[in-house]
Simulated assay, not measured.
Amino acid sequence: MEYRRLGSSGLKVSALSFGSWVTFGKQVDIDLAAEEMKAALDQGVNFFDNAEVYENGQSEIVMGQAIKKLGLVRKDYLVSTKIFWGGSGPNDQGLSRKHILEGTRAALERLQVEYVDLIFCHRPDPETPIEETVRAMHHVIDRGWALYWGTSEWSSEQIRQAWETAHRLGLTPPTMEQPEYNMFHRDRVEVEYAPLYRDFGLGTTIWSPLASGVLTGKYSQGITDGRLTLPGYEWLRKIYESDEGRSRIEKVEKLRPIASDLGASLAQLAIAWTLKNPQVSTVITGASRPEQVTENMKALDILPKLDRGVIDAIEEVLQNRPKEPRNWRNA
């Protein structure tokens, strides 16, 4: 396993990590969760991602019980939560001081830990002043309930405002952002955030490296199983039943020979491609079976094979190179 610093912080995270979105508490019970986490740990994974909204907190409960079942030593793993959607009450959502503090304590209870290593503001909250959110997150850090705080799916301007507010007030600034990043979703990570890497040393814990399973090639013969067929994810299925979605699925098939030449699966190629970007601190993978965990980790073996020729071949298929090229593609 490769370990990367989380932005400019001193924390080291495994280049590949493991997340519970969609699976824990929905497709995966405690026993299977423990098996999957054990498979990840055996491959050197040290970071496990979660959120209060995942299955309405059940995902955190399952992960917490799996951690207890495995008898993990707290110093040997990193765990996260994300705060925004905590319930249906008027103060159970958003980034008010009240919800951040109460949501954090509730997450710690569900996970059965004294602190989380990373805590994220799961979305920006236009109804709460950024200063209130920054002060609340600093309080969470100051109390030791979390070690680092960050954002998820915030714009570069919102992150900059949070960082500058923290700096002005002598408070803890955000360390990391958790954005979507994959072969079909690139501009934010590769272009919009570029000044933040330079100015603040922003770290990234990227999600959906497989574009909700599309980059595995499983939908080339139609959408008959997988995440796109799950109840509650009809919105995602509609995206890939559109003309643009079908175009993406066709491009995946054109990537198949490239993956084959490298001795890789499409999923391993897609994951390795995200790791090629040095601004990616860790790639959050998911799985519904332990075998999938092990297969995803083999992406690390593919990473050294992604030379300029391979990257150019991938770009020829994707045809979505951002207007401002990033140097990492020329590595």
Rank of each mutant, 00 (worst) to 15 (best):
E2Q: 15
S9A: 06
L11H: 02
W21S: 05
W21M: 13
F24S: 10
F24T: 02
Q27P: 01
V28E: 06
D31L: 04
A33E: 04
A40M: 01
Q43L: 12
G44V: 13
V45K: 07
A51V: 11
A51G: 10
E52I: 14
V53N: 15
Y54A: 15
E60A: 02
E60Y: 05
M63L: 15
Q65A: 14
K68D: 15
K68F: 12
K69E: 15
G71N: 13
L72G: 14
S80P: 04
W85Q: 13
W85M: 08
N91E: 14
R97T: 13
H99Q: 06
I100H: 01
R105I: 10
A107N: 02
R110G: 12
L111D: 11
L111M: 08
Q112I: 01
V113F: 09
D117G: 03
H122D: 01
P124Y: 00
P126H: 00
E127S: 14
P129I: 03
P129N: 00
I130V: 13
E132G: 11
R135I: 12
M137W: 12
M137G: 08
I141C: 09
A146Y: 01
L147A: 09
L147F: 10
T151D: 10
E153L: 08
S156T: 13
E157W: 07
E157G: 11
I159A: 07
R160P: 00
R160H: 13
T165I: 03
Q178M: 12
R186F: 05
D187Y: 13
V189N: 06
A194C: 00
G201F: 04
T205V: 15
I206P: 05
W207N: 06
W207G: 04
P209C: 08
P209N: 12
P209G: 07
A211W: 11
S212M: 15
G213N: 04
G217C: 03
G217L: 06
K218Y: 08
G222L: 10
R227T: 14
T229Y: 07
T229N: 04
P231A: 13
Y233H: 15
E234N: 02
W235V: 07
R237F: 08
S242L: 09
G245H: 05
R246W: 04
E250Q: 15
K254C: 12
L255V: 13
L255T: 03
A264K: 01
L266E: 00
W273Q: 02
W273C: 10
Q279E: 13
Q279P: 02
S281P: 00
T282F: 09
T285H: 09
T285C: 05
G286N: 01
A287I: 07
R289W: 05
E291W: 06
K298N: 03
L300Q: 11
L300M: 03
D307K: 02
R308M: 00
G309H: 07
G309E: 06
V310L: 00
I311F: 05
D312I: 03
E315L: 06
E316Y: 03
R321F: 00
P325Y: 00
R326Y: 00
N327V: 13
R329A: 13
